[in-house]
Simulated scan of single mutants.
Amino acid sequence: MTNDHDVEHAKLTEQIASHPYPLVFVTVSGAHLYGFPSPDSDFDLRGVHLLPLETIVGLDEGDQTVEKDCIDNGLEIDLVTHDAEKFFRMMLKRNGYVLEQIFSPLVLHTTPEHEELKAIAKRCITRHHAHHYLGFAATQWKLFAKESPPRVKPLLYVYRVLLTGIHLMRTGEVQANLNQLNESAKLSYIDELVDRKRSGPEKGTLNDTDLDFHTRQYERLTATLESAYQASTLPEMPTARDALNDLLIRLRLHPRTSGIVEDGV
């Protein structure tokens, strides 16, 4: 008998198969990657596509970004991919989000070049990625604090981002799953928040009395990330530009793709 997981996987791969360009990889991001999807959470698919050489050298500008939204029998799917050149340039900036996409263990489509990209991406990690996570956390905190009653979802994003940044500064490892991050952080309140998010609707809320407690925790973890940044031994600058340039040239001149990973998410 086909179960819900198989049905979801079939719908996701169907969307990927209809993409107009060859794909280097597609992985799952968002709440499913972060470890706290609600029953009604949509699927955020992210990846890299490859524009044909004719588009690059000719007058017709190709799609640097492709966005596809659909609802398939109640399943919301949001697929966003960037052309390899655009994505590689983002990798060379302080952009933790694209690194999380590359290293996501929830793989729906992969190629040998995706594996090569993972190795190259390690040389894109710098101590200044802390600024990405500090800024993202501040934005999510504003979303959380301005609502009455405050929602669980933006609060979990705050904690996920801060713990990802702290872990990255200390280990050089990109880890986006809040449950795995909390195995070392050991924040007693995280499990309860995750349970509420997983078992409830996307718009689940907290009591206003919780705001003071979480304000203190946000300030404490922000200070911890700032300290981890100061103490980090990660490089100051990425060293992957030449490797990314070489990979991009090979992708342009010798494009290739492989099939959907059978044992995806």
Score class of each variant (00 low, 15 high):
Trp141Ala: 02
Leu244Lys: 00
Ile16Phe: 08
Gly200His: 03
Pro201Tyr: 10
Leu225Phe: 00
Thr65Trp: 01
Leu33Asn: 07
Val194Lys: 03
Glu67Asn: 10
Pro22Ala: 08
Val152Glu: 02
Leu168Pro: 01
Leu99Lys: 01
Thr233Asp: 13
Gln175Ser: 11
Gly58Ile: 12
Leu247Pro: 02
Ala223Trp: 03
Asp40Cys: 09
Ser232Lys: 02
Ile125Phe: 08
Pro39Met: 08
Leu206Ala: 09
His49Ile: 08
Tyr218Leu: 07
Glu262Tyr: 13
Val152Asp: 01
His132Asp: 00
Ser258Arg: 11
Leu244His: 01
Ile71Trp: 05
Leu181Met: 09
Val261Met: 12
Ile125Thr: 06
Thr2Lys: 13
Pro20Ser: 07
Val66Ser: 01
Phe36Cys: 05
His131Leu: 00
Thr233Gln: 13
Pro20His: 06
Val174Arg: 02
Leu53Tyr: 14
Ile260Leu: 15
Thr2Gln: 13
Ile77Cys: 04
Lys203Trp: 11
Gln180Ser: 10
Leu117Cys: 07
Glu147Pro: 02
Gly74Asn: 07
Glu76Arg: 14
Tyr159His: 10
Leu45Val: 07
Arg198Asn: 09
Glu147Asn: 09
Val26Arg: 01
Glu116Gly: 10
Thr65Ile: 13
Ser184Cys: 08
Tyr157Asp: 02
Lys11Cys: 04
Thr126Glu: 02
Ala31Arg: 07
Ser29Asn: 12
Gln64Asp: 14
Ile166Cys: 03
Thr205Asn: 10
Glu85Arg: 11
Gly74Ala: 07
Pro150Phe: 08
Thr126Met: 04
Ser199Ala: 14
Leu221Cys: 03
Pro20Val: 07
Thr209His: 14
Ser188Asp: 15
Ser199Thr: 15
Leu168Gln: 01
Cys124Ala: 10
Ala119Lys: 14
Asn207Met: 13
Ser18His: 12
His131Tyr: 04
Gly96His: 00
Leu92Trp: 10
Lys146Arg: 15
Asp83Trp: 05
Arg89Trp: 10
Asp4Gly: 03
Asp208Met: 14
Leu117His: 03
Asp42Leu: 06
Glu113Ile: 03
Ala185Asp: 08
Gly35Ala: 12
Phe136Arg: 01
His49Ala: 05
Asp60Asn: 12
Thr111His: 09
Val161Met: 04
Arg123Pro: 01
Arg196Trp: 04
Gly47Trp: 02
Leu92Ser: 09
Glu219Leu: 15
Thr233Glu: 12
Glu100Tyr: 00
Ser148Met: 11
His128Leu: 00
Asp78Pro: 01
Ala176Cys: 13
Gly172Cys: 06
Ala231Tyr: 04
Val98Thr: 05
Arg160His: 03
Phe25Leu: 09
Phe136Gly: 00
Gly74Tyr: 10
Leu106Ser: 02
Ala223Ser: 14
Ser227Tyr: 03
Val66Glu: 01
Arg89Cys: 05
Ala145His: 08
Val158Met: 04
His254Ala: 11
Gly259Cys: 04
Ser188Thr: 12
Thr81Trp: 04
Lys142Gly: 09
Thr65Ser: 08
Ala176Gly: 12
Ala84Arg: 02
Arg198Glu: 12
Gln64Ser: 10
Arg241Phe: 11
His5Gly: 03
Tyr97Gly: 00
Gly204Ile: 15
Asp195Phe: 09
Arg250Lys: 14
Asn95Val: 07
